[in-house]
Amino acid sequence: MFVRTVYVTGDPTKIDTAIRALNTEGRDLLEERPGYRGAGVFVDRELGKLFSASWWTSKEARHNSDEVMRERRGALLEPFAGTVAVENYEAAVFHAQQMPRTSGGLRITRLEFEPEDTELVADTFQASVLPRLETLHGLARASLLVDRDRGRGMVHILFVDHESMAASRSAQAMARHEGTAKAHVTVIGLEEFEVVHADVHPD
Results as ranks from 00 to 15, higher is better:
Phe2Gly: 02
Phe2Leu: 11
Thr5Ser: 11
Thr9Ser: 13
Lys14Tyr: 01
Asp16Trp: 05
Ala21Ile: 06
Asn23Leu: 10
Asn23Trp: 04
Glu25Arg: 14
Glu25Gln: 14
Gly26Leu: 00
Arg27Ala: 13
Leu29His: 14
Leu29Thr: 07
Glu31Lys: 14
Glu32Val: 08
Gly35Lys: 05
Tyr36Pro: 01
Arg37Leu: 13
Arg37Glu: 02
Gly38Asp: 06
Ala39Met: 12
Asp44Trp: 03
Asp44His: 06
Arg45Thr: 08
Leu47Trp: 05
Phe51Trp: 13
Trp56Ile: 09
Ser58Gly: 00
Lys59Glu: 12
Glu60Pro: 01
Arg62Asn: 11
Ser65Asn: 15
Ser65Tyr: 11
Asp66His: 15
Glu67Leu: 15
Glu67Gly: 08
Val68Gln: 08
Met69Glu: 04
Arg70Trp: 03
Glu71Gln: 11
Arg73Tyr: 08
Thr83Asp: 13
Val84Ala: 00
Ala85Glu: 15
Val86His: 07
Val86Trp: 04
Ala91Ile: 09
Ala91Lys: 07
Ala92Cys: 06
Val93Tyr: 05
Phe94Ala: 05
His95Glu: 15
His95Leu: 10
His95Cys: 11
His95Tyr: 12
Ala96Gly: 13
Gln98Lys: 13
Gln98His: 04
Met99Tyr: 00
Met99Lys: 15
Leu106Ala: 04
Ile108Arg: 08
Leu111Tyr: 03
Leu111Arg: 04
Pro115Arg: 10
Thr118Tyr: 14
Thr118Glu: 12
Thr118Asp: 09
Gln126Asp: 09
Ser128Gln: 15
Ser128Cys: 02
Leu130Asp: 08
Pro131Arg: 09
Leu133Trp: 10
Thr135Asp: 15
Leu136Ile: 06
Ser143Trp: 08
Ser143Thr: 12
Val146Arg: 02
Asp149Glu: 15
Arg152Leu: 11
Arg152Gly: 08
His156Ile: 01
Phe159Lys: 04
Asp161Asn: 12
Asp161His: 01
Asp161Gln: 04
His162Asp: 11
Ala166Ser: 11
Ala167Ile: 04
Ser168Pro: 01
Arg169Phe: 06
Ala171Met: 11
Ala171His: 09
Ala171Lys: 10
Gln172Ala: 00
Met174Ile: 09
Arg176Val: 08
His177Pro: 00
Thr180Gln: 14
Thr180Val: 12
Lys182Asn: 07
His184Ser: 11
His184Ala: 09
Val185Trp: 01
Val187Thr: 11
Leu190Gln: 14
Glu191Pro: 03
Glu192His: 13
Glu192Cys: 02
Val195Phe: 01
Val195His: 05
Val196Gln: 07
Ala198Asn: 10
Ala198Val: 05
His201Leu: 12
His201Arg: 13
Pro202Asp: 04
Asp203Leu: 14
Asp203Arg: 14
